[in-house]
Design a protein around this nucleic acid. Structure first.
Length: 384
DNA sequence: CGCCTTTGACCAGCGC
DNA sequence: GCGCTGGTCAAAGGCG
């Protein structure tokens, strides 16, 4: 239901007009109300379908996680949620192999200690891999974790963030620094691209971005814009927005690179978690962790078919959100995943990028969609 | 005044 | 070595 319809329904014109005009307007209003009612019913149906689908998906994820001992994903759903808060769910997610394993060990201890329900009811946080993290202010443990993470980030990335020229000088002076920096760079260069149909090229993903450059690539006559995360002065995360001109609708390829060194707003975490899962999939490499991470991908993008193929040449995952695929099927049956790693083979020219196809979520209202899914997850977890 | 976008220049990597 | 290309820098200007 559009805003215009809402306004027209709730505020009929009071202007002076003849009886036939009033009757016509009354009929039109009735028709609109009926239309809205039908739409409402459809939305209710869709909602119930999504609830059922999510329920099935969650069971599937739990099953996968149980099967894989030592998998790098932990999912905790606190059923003793605060009744005053519809979103009072305690979710802890660890996606793939994080470079912050020290932190992860700390979090494991915290998670083990949090078996007691009293603690869990107090703790409200979501911890996402690849540097994406949110937490509520009242959680002192999470605060401590975050500060530890910040210190680690500062230590690890200070060379990279300060300036490129300084980094180059450091490389020349100290070979050990070269190796360490190379490791960090290789992690940082894991990219996640999201291809989406969108009217606005600056996809509202919840973060604040500052444009620092624009180029017209040779391969694509349409300009490519470069953005830097402006939520933190030292945040190394960057993104590129490339318009795809081959389609009638406006499609944009948004490529994310790097880890946030600051908490993310609530609305930014779903996409961040999904892209984190995709990036973890690339970084993991091993089949076991890949399959577990693919399960987490299913978790974050339950209504999409996606496939990944990757090489070691240029680790980039592409999420394709341009193919709507709303069905009434269960996400288990509608979501399929295939993975092709060819780390030992030289990459063919066409496989420099790796494609994840998510048909279903359009990004004309990405945040509302994500928020909706977050609500579904939260409420369903409370029902179980 | 601060933050943002624009845009030309510069730099590094890569292929020939 | 040279040229091409992608990515980044930084000055200038706009906007609230």
């Amino acid at each position: 239901m559009t805003k215009e319809e809402t306004v027209s329904c709730s505020q009929p014109s009071d202007g002076v007009m003849g009886e036939p005009d009033k009757e016509e307007e009354l009929d039109a209003t009735k028709a609109k109300v009926e239309k809205v009612r039908e739409e409402n019913e459809k939305l209710k149906l869709l909602l119930s379908t999504i609830l059922n689908n999510y329920n099935s998906l969650q069971m599937h994820v739990s099953e996968v996680l149980r099967k894989q001992q030592g998998a790098s994903i932990e999912l905790e759903v606190d059923r003793d949620q605060d009744k005053d808060n519809d979103f009072g769910v305690d979710i802890s997610l660890r996606l793939g192999r994080s470079s912050e394993q020290t932190i992860s060990k700390k979090e494991e201890k915290v998670d083990k200690a949090s078996d007691e329900k009293e603690e869990r009811s107090k703790k409200k946080r979501s911890s996402l891999g690849l540097g994406f993290q949110i937490q509520n202010c009242e959680d002192s443990t999470s605060k401590l974790d975050y500060h530890c993470r910040q210190v680690k980030n500062v230590n690890a990335e200070s060379k990279c963030v300060s300036s490129r020229k300084d980094a180059k000088t450091a490389r020349n002076e100290n070979h050990q620094d070269v190796l360490e920096e190379h490791e960090q760079t290789s992690l940082k260069k894991t990219r996640v691209s999201v291809k989406a149909t969108c009217e606005d090229p600056s996809i509202n993903d919840g973060c604040q971005w500052r444009k620092y450059g624009q180029k017209t690539a040779k391969t694509n006559p349409l300009p490519r814009a470069y953005y830097r995360c402006s939520m933190s002065s030292n945040c190394p995360v960057r993104k590129q927005v490339q318009r795809c001109g081959e389609e009638e609708t406006s499609a944009f390829m948004t490529t994310y690179e790097g880890n946030h060194d600051h908490p993310l707003p609530m609305e930014a975490t779903h996409m961040a978690a999904g892209t984190s899962a995709a990036a973890s999939l690339l970084q993991s490499g091993s089949s076991s962790s890949s399959s577990s991470t693919s399960a987490s991908l299913s978790y974050y993008f339950p209504y999409h078919h996606f496939s990944i193929s990757t090489t070691n040449a240029h680790p980039t995952v592409t999420l394709d959100l341009t193919r709507p695929n709303y069905t009434n099927q269960s996400p288990i049956s509608s979501s399929s995943f295939s993975l092709n790693f060819s780390s030992s083979d030289p990459p063919p020219p066409s496989s420099q990028d790796h494609t994840l196809n998510f048909g279903g979520l359009r990004t004309q209202a990405p945040l509302s969609t994500d928020s909706l899914m977050a609500r579904y997850r939260t409420r369903l977890s409370g029902q179980q």
